[in-house]
């Protein structure tokens, strides 16, 4: 269930940096990978996205000014092109991040709507999207088949006799690959064996075992 790989236990100063100290783009990268690497919906990084959008906006204005300035040299034009490429790449990250979240939200929309505990992790727009999507999907099901079934078969939130619910939930048992930025102490594996999450080590573990470290940013999802 877990594989331990030596990530170089020495861990220079760089490993100490937690998310808060990174620059925005680096942080976006980490946040994006974390969102893609886990089954559950992580907290919406609204401040980060706002700050990145502000910077993109400023950058765009600067690029526009420099490009229209006839005094800009050939070399500077080349540099501008690099800046613009970088901007496109950042936009790609944001787009992929937002769409990964949308995908998860649509998949678990009904669960999200009926579980108030997860609401703080979503932005306002995402929450309203989840609500409206659930409604849309249910209307579709209702009009397509449910309305022509006997009344006792029309519900959308049944739990069948084998305990399987009609409402899909995020699976917290799926494995995640993590890299420990800090010493995360010791955890107990399901079979009772202890495992040490030392600084600088990488592990493949069930998500629910390391959920708290991931959310704190002490462990980075790879």
């Amino acid at each position: 269930m877990f594989g331990e790989g030596g990530g170089g236990g020495d861990g220079g100063d760089e490993d100490e940096t937690l998310e808060g100290d990174m620059d925005d783009v680096r942080r976006l990268g980490v946040v994006w990978v974390r969102e893609r690497g886990t089954g559950e919906i992580m907290s919406w990084e609204g401040d980060l996205i706002d700050s990145i959008f502000d910077k993109l906006d400023q950058q765009q204005k600067m690029v526009d000014t420099l490009r229209s300035d006839p005094d800009t040299s050939e070399e500077e034009h080349f540099k501008l092109m690099l800046v613009m490429t970088e901007m496109e790449r950042v936009k790609y990250l944001v787009r992929s991040y937002v769409r990964t979240r949308l995908w998860k939200i649509e998949k678990f929309s009904q669960y999200i709507v009926i579980t108030p505990e997860v609401h703080p992790s979503l932005s306002g727009a995402e929450l309203s999207h989840a609500r409206r999507y659930t409604e849309l999907l249910h209307t579709h099901f209702q009009h397509s088949v449910l309305d022509s079934l006997p009344e006792w078969l029309r519900k959308m939130d049944e739990t069948s006799s084998d305990g399987l619910s009609m409402i899909p939930k995020p699976n917290k048992n799926i494995p995640v690959l993590i890299y420990c930025r800090r010493d995360c102490g010791e955890i107990t594996l399901p079979d009772g064996e202890p495992a040490a999450l030392g600084k600088g080590s990488t592990h493949l573990l069930k998500y629910n075992l390391v959920e708290q470290w991931i959310k704190l940013g002490w462990a980075e999802v790879l």
């Binding site: 993109l56 490429t85 790449r89 936009k91 790609y92 787009r95 992929s96």
Partner: peptide, 12 residues
Amino acid sequence: VLDLTAGIDRPP
């Protein structure tokens, strides 16, 4: 700022 529906198959 950006068009959400543009492709995300490959990074630019």
